[in-house]
Design a binder for these strands. Structure first.
Length: 239
DNA sequence: AACCAGGACGTGA
DNA sequence: TCACGTCATGGT
């Protein structure tokens, strides 16, 4: 770190640039309710919107991101998205409809996303929370009090649903930066989070793309050991 | 057939 | 605080 600063370079920015050059803009967070068009057609089954940092453009889209953030916990996005579509068909993803949705129907709809018993409850809790907001932006501490929302989910909601500059740390992020020698294995969430936030400008599009790029990169190089990250290890001389 | 996926919660040291 | 078991389906 000190050497990097003396050289007037920022390794965190270098890594971002390399990932961006390699993978391009990711366009997170994926939305189903997009452009007011029929979701089963536009289907944001590909639902990405690279380069559009204005989204979400209404409260309902922020709410959809909350639902997706719960559903994708320790689960592939493809599975979470399928669950989200099932819910859409039943409720149009309107909070009131989710609230009154029968428990067994809810569970059947989201079964494909795994952990459906707890996630069914979590979805109701986050819905109650969303309705109480009445359009206001929540504080991080408040979201963390919602059952089912941990640090990563809270930061995901703040960064992608409310455009707050909170860096999102997930298992992939830790895996990559441990492999590159920046952090110890099982480093605490807030330590890793602060590492990024203290070495990057607090820009929402940067944080959004960075996290998405790390996920995309990790899916290719960090799913099975031994990790062979020929892309980023070039940036780390003594490795 | 084990292992992993865009984690979080509850429990007992 | 911390380490660990638990939750669960779906794909390699």
């Amino acid at each position: 770190m000190i050497k990097a600063q003396l050289k007037n370079t920022n390794i965190f920015r270098e890594i971002f640039d390399k990932l961006m050059n390699h993978y391009g803009m990711q366009g997170w967070w994926p939305l189903i309710n997009f452009n007011g068009t029929n979701p089963t057609k536009t289907c944001s089954l590909q639902g990405y919107h690279p380069g559009n940092y204005e989204l979400p453009e209404n409260d309902l889209q922020s709410y959809e991101i909350m639902l997706g953030a719960i559903l994708t916990q320790n689960t592939k996005w493809k599975s979470a998205q399928k669950a989200l579509f099932n819910l859409y068909e039943i409720t149009r993803l309107e909070p009131q409809n989710i609230l009154i949705l029968r428990e067994d129907i809810m569970k059947e709809a989201i079964r494909c996303a795994g952990f459906f018993n707890q996630k069914a409850e979590y979805l109701k809790r986050i819905t109650e929370f969303f309705l109480k907001l009445e359009g206001s932006t929540p504080e991080r501490k408040e979201i963390l009090r919602v059952k089912g929302v941990g640090e990563e989910t809270a930061d995901s909601i703040l960064l992608y649903a409310y455009k707050k500059p909170e860096f999102v740390v997930d298992a992939y992020t830790k895996r990559i930066f441990h492999h590159l020698g920046f952090i110890k294995e099982n480093e605490k969430y807030r330590v890793v989070k602060k590492l990024f936030e203290s070495n990057l400008p607090q820009a929402v599009p940067l944080f959004q793309e960075y996290h998405a790029l790390l996920v995309e990169h990790a899916k290719r190089y960090y799913t099975k050991k031994p990790y062979q990250d020929e892309l980023l290890t070039d940036l780390i001389p003594n490795l």
